[in-house]
Amino acid sequence: MIPSALPRRAGVGFKPEHFADILAEPQTIGFFEVHAENYMGAGGPPHAQLGKLREDYALSIHGVGLSIGSMQPLDRDHLARLKTLCDRYRPESFSEHLAWSSHDGVFLNDLLPLPYTRETLDRVIEHVDQVQATLGRQMLLENPATYLLFAESTIEETDFLAEIARRTGCGLLLDVNNVFVAATNHNLDPRDYIARFPLEAVREIHLGGHSETIDDHGACLLIDSHDTPVKDPVWALYETVIGRLGPVASLVEWDNDLPAWPMLRAEAEAAQHILDRAAQQRAA
């Protein structure tokens, strides 16, 4: 099984809108991440651009449509498409979400939450095993941003992820923004979540922006909207994680209301600065 092995540097989510700027000069970007489903056409500019990026940068392929958290069987056709894509680009890492997005053959195009029980644990483990066996590589599983909880849940999310990693050998993708969003939405301390998280399995970190709204009772409800710079409390949480973990591949995600390239690059540079400082402290 090919292990997930991104450089321990800051990267950004690639958007075609930034391609010309990226190409214009060498970038101090550790890696680019793309959504797998956007590269499942047969040809055309998406592949021409990704092929060019691949020549110069490390690559992470991030799936958003496999529905690993579904109680229903994985879509074998989709899994085959993921294999074709990974075989073609040989990315340093492949990751997906602890969530579901398909039901009864309908694709719901959102990362939906699941209850954490012995039953769902076994099913997700089965699915992760199936993905890793098909792709012939270790995958990373990402913690979700959630807005609701399930009455039937009996397992903490951190224990749920730790058990999946232990039993399948998969790595984890720790989305620090998701931690902050979900902890706020469930009135929990994000630092407690980090303290319980199996950091030893983390191979990549996600950072992103969120926005604020309120719930039915007037309490703050955060939305994982990826349409703003990374917020200060998320940077602070990230510094805590890096302080404990040392440098690890760290991605800045920006999916909606895209900024100009220099602004996104500056976000990655801010993450790189934190990584560099952690490396220096370790060396000292």
Binding site: L112, F150, A219
Partner: peptide, 20 residues
């Protein structure tokens, strides 16, 4: 089957998914 920490009215929380 859904819950939240602060009460039983979940319309807005569930609507985040509907809207997404």
């Amino acid at each position: 089957s859904l819950t939240a920490w602060n009460g039983t009215a979940l319309e807005r929380r569930y609507s985040v998914y509907r809207n997404n």
